[in-house]
Amino acid sequence: MEANKRAMQVQRYTLGFGVMGSTVSGLQRVSIVALGAHLVMSGEFSAGMLVAFVAYADQFAQKAGALIDKIVEFRMLSLHAERIADVALAEPEQNVVSTNSGRKLNARIRLNNIGFRYSQSEPWIIRKVTLEVNDGESVAIIGPSGFGKSTLARLMVGLLEPTEGCVEIDGVDIRSFGLAGYRELLGVVMQDDSLFAGTIADNISFFDAAARIEPIVEAASMAGIHRDVSALPMGYESLVGDMGAALSGGQQQRLLLARAFYKKPKILILDEATSHLDTDTEHVINRHVGSLKATRIIFAHRKETIASADRVVDLTSFVRTESFDQDVGPSPQHDEGAQSLA
């Protein structure tokens, strides 16, 4: 977030100085030509003197402008240094290494009285959410935009740390289990995921040096992208461009799904992962997702995706705005508001 703010600040300064420089340069040239024309008409300058004067003035303006640009670039070095510092000096992620030495855990996820807000002065995004997803179960979590679905997905993945409560896998806090080991069990597609410069095969296997083509093709077929890839001249060796620029939005989304399927995860978390797809393709992918022997947690708006789940949980049964419940929040009720699909 801070790095993005610094980048926007640099762009604003660069644009502002560019406009100022162009304006001053234009006014200076108009003034010189007007003054020279006046001196020629009054007989104080000859035409040759005017040409020489304008040429010397242009050289002076160019050198002065270059000097000012270097001064501005030097002053902006501090902004670039702060952008780098946001990354280089960021605190290392905590609870990465496992401290759990017990039994092999099942893929059962429990949100235990979860609450999250970005700071003490900010309102609660979600609060007192208690929900359990059994091993191998498929659950769709629904709710209006802005009700914290993506935030809840990030909490489940371990990208955000809860302000209150904890996320458990088979009764063990994921921070005790170890985030690195926990994420090895996950296949995740978030709304803001992106592809990387490289081939289609590299992006599906996530640049796995030991990747084989058979699992890559299998994952692509499950995501409904194999036919599109096969039609390309270089197939799976085709480059996706900068952040997937060579592909359509739907193709990018299916490649991200293929990346998640490639891991053969025990827990699959999808946050609006089929929002750019047509109904037929979405139906095929939902059928493949339903056939996985994994715990599936799907955040969705579209009826077709919601209908593919074993159980539906409405997030509005947990979430309340600060104006209604600032101090206490909603009472934790396990699976309250959950709806079973007939």
Rank of each mutant, 00 (worst) to 15 (best):
D173V: 11
R183W: 04
Q326N: 12
I216T: 06
G26I: 07
S323I: 12
A342W: 08
E132K: 00
T163Q: 03
V172R: 05
F207C: 03
V139N: 08
D202S: 04
A47C: 02
R287P: 12
I204V: 11
K263L: 07
L270R: 08
V51G: 06
L315W: 04
V24L: 10
I216E: 07
E91M: 11
N112T: 08
L159G: 10
C166N: 12
A88M: 13
Q120Y: 11
S150I: 09
M243W: 09
F196I: 08
F299N: 02
E282K: 04
A88D: 12
I125W: 01
A210R: 01
V284P: 01
V72K: 03
Q251I: 09
S78A: 14
A64H: 02
T163V: 08
D192V: 13
L89D: 14
I142M: 04
I216N: 01
R29I: 15
V284N: 15
S275N: 06
I225R: 01
M234D: 15
A64C: 09
R302V: 07
R127W: 05
L277Y: 00
F324H: 12
D314H: 00
H226P: 07
A140E: 05
F206L: 13
K303Q: 14
H38F: 15
M76G: 01
V240N: 02
S194P: 02
R6P: 02
G290S: 15
S121P: 11
S317Q: 08
R83L: 15
L27F: 14
A294F: 00
V319K: 01
V19P: 04
L277R: 01
E93C: 04
R117M: 02
V312H: 00
V72P: 06
S248H: 05
S101D: 10
T99H: 13
T279F: 05
H226Q: 10
G48E: 05
R117Y: 02
I84L: 15
E214T: 13
G187N: 02
M234I: 03
W124M: 05
K293H: 15
I114R: 03
D208F: 02
S205G: 07
R12C: 11
S176G: 14
A153Y: 03
E214N: 11
S119N: 10
R175D: 13
D310S: 08
V24A: 10
S340C: 09
L315G: 04
D310Q: 10
R227E: 14
A88Y: 10
R320T: 14
V24I: 15
A260I: 08
E322W: 07
E137H: 07
D271W: 00
L186F: 05
K293F: 14
G290K: 12
Q59D: 04
D170C: 10
E91T: 13
Q252K: 15
L239G: 14
G102Q: 05
N113I: 10
G165Q: 03
V30H: 09
V319N: 02
A180T: 06
R296P: 04
L195Q: 00
F261E: 07
G198A: 09
I142Q: 00
S46G: 12
F53D: 09
E218T: 14
T274E: 08
G235T: 06
A37C: 11
R108F: 06
A260F: 09
A246E: 13
D327I: 14
E93M: 10
E161V: 15
I109Q: 03
L195N: 03
V313L: 09
